[in-house]
């Protein structure tokens, strides 16, 4: 069932992204650079968040069912549920760094349109990679829970397989962080 939902959520995420892009393209000159930058920061937080919400929701559902079946597995299932939750944190992190770059905590800077777009695009790698990797990582976690059910002593392996998917969220995060810190000229 969850497999069928992944496409839908990726689509929703991309629609939000495209919507923001269109808003920026058409109304950017009226809204100003700060709004564009905030849209980018918001996208990173929201898309990463969506990925993690859906993922942690689906994994949590299965974990709860399996805990009902055998409460002893709770400790092994919890990390598997938490694993796709990191994408939301990465998204938040990038959003936060964008705010720091705007000096939001020390009297906001007045960004030009160009600077606004720079921040916007710098946020995208993390936003997209976190959205999609979160969803697909959940898929691996769900299958990993079957390892816990059938061979509890091999639970460690169930943790490593989803980590492969997370790699790309980490790289997206890194790319966004480096872009915001060094490539955005403010």
């Amino acid at each position: 069932m969850f497999e069928g939902m992944i496409g839908k959520w990726v689509l929703i995420g991309c629609l939000i992204l495209v919507g923001m892009l269109i808003v920026g393209l058409f109304f950017g000159p009226f809204l100003g650079g700060n709004v564009l930058a905030l849209m980018g920061a918001g996208l990173a937080v929201a898309l990463g968040g969506i990925g993690s919400i859906v993922a942690v929701g689906a994994t949590g559902e299965k974990a709860a069912g399996m805990t009902a079946e055998n409460p002893d597995n709770f400790g092994r299932l919890l990390p598997l549920q938490a694993l796709p939750g990191t994408q939301g944190i990465y998204g938040f992190l990038v959003g936060f760094l964008a705010l720091v770059k705007m000096e939001a905590f020390a009297g906001v800077l007045e960004l030009s349109l160009e600077q606004g777009w720079q921040v916007f695009f710098a946020c995208l790698p993390c936003a997209l990679s976190c959205l999609i990797s979160g969803l697909y990582q959940a898929k691996v976690c769900l299958s990993g829970m079957d390892i816990v059910a059938k061979k509890p002593e091999e639970s460690g392996k169930a943790l490593i397989l989803p980590a492969m998917v997370e790699t790309y969220a980490v790289l997206g995060l890194l790319a966004s962080v480096l872009m915001i810190m060094f490539a955005v000229k403010i």
Partner: peptide
């Protein structure tokens, strides 16, 4: 590079 990313996180 993930070491840096996680460290930063």
């Amino acid at each position: 590079a993930r070491i840096l990313a996680l460290g930063l996180a």
